[in-house]
Simulated assay, not measured.
Amino acid sequence: MHKCTRNGCGLEFDETINDPLACQYHPGKPEFHEGLKGWTCCKPRVYSFDEFMDIKGCQLAPHSSEPKNKDDPFKADLTKHDDVLPEPQSTADESAEAKAAPAAPAAPVALAAPAKAPKPEPIDEDPAGIPVPAGMQCKRNGCTAVYVSEDESHQDGQCQFHPGNALFHEGNKGWTCCRPRATEFDEFLRIKGCARGRHLFVGTRPDKKAQAEKCRRDYYQSGTSVIVSIYAKKIDRKASWIKFVPRALQVHLVYGEDKVYDDEIELYDEIDPTASSFEFLSTKAEVTLVKVAQAQWPTLEGASA
Rank of each mutant, 00 (worst) to 15 (best):
Ser304His: 15
Lys234Arg: 13
His162Ile: 05
Lys99Pro: 00
Leu21Gln: 14
Lys99Asn: 11
Ala112Cys: 08
Ile230Asp: 02
Thr183Val: 11
Gln89Met: 12
Pro67His: 08
Lys284Thr: 01
Ala76Trp: 01
Arg237Tyr: 01
Cys177Asp: 09
Glu187Phe: 00
Asp54Arg: 11
Pro206Arg: 08
Gly256Gln: 03
Lys139His: 09
Cys4Ile: 07
Glu170Gln: 15
Glu170Thr: 11
Arg196Val: 13
Pro120Ser: 09
His81Pro: 01
Val109Met: 09
Gln296Leu: 12
Ala275Val: 04
Tyr147Lys: 00
Ala98Cys: 13
Lys43Tyr: 09
Asn18Leu: 02
His199Ala: 03
Glu279Ala: 13
Arg198Ile: 02
Cys215Pro: 01
Gln24Glu: 10
Glu94Ser: 12
Pro27Ser: 08
Ala128Gln: 15
Leu300Cys: 03
Leu60Cys: 06
Asn165Pro: 00
Phe74Thr: 13
Lys243Gln: 12
Glu34Phe: 07
Ala96Arg: 13
Glu266Gly: 10
Asp19Cys: 06
Gly28Ile: 08
Leu249Gly: 01
Lys214Asn: 13
Pro108Asn: 13
Cys9His: 07
Glu66His: 11
Pro105Lys: 14
Phe32Ile: 14
Cys41Phe: 04
Val226Arg: 01
Asp151Phe: 09
Asn141Leu: 11
Pro273Ile: 08
Asp126Arg: 03
Leu11Ile: 06
Leu36His: 12
Ile130Val: 15
Ser149Asn: 07
Arg196Cys: 03
Asn141Arg: 11
Arg217Asp: 05
Asp207Gln: 10
Gly129Ser: 09
Lys209Arg: 13
Thr299Asn: 12
Pro246Val: 03
Pro30Gly: 07
Pro27Cys: 06
Val245Gln: 10
Tyr261Met: 05
Val46Met: 06
His252Gln: 10
Lys284Gln: 13
Ala112Ile: 04
Pro88Ala: 10
Cys177Ser: 06
Gly38Arg: 07
Ala182Gly: 14
Gln89Pro: 00
Lys192Pro: 06
Pro127Asn: 03
Lys119Tyr: 07
Asp14Tyr: 10
Pro20Ser: 06
Ala112Pro: 04
Gly223Phe: 10
Pro122His: 01
Asp54Tyr: 00
Val290His: 09
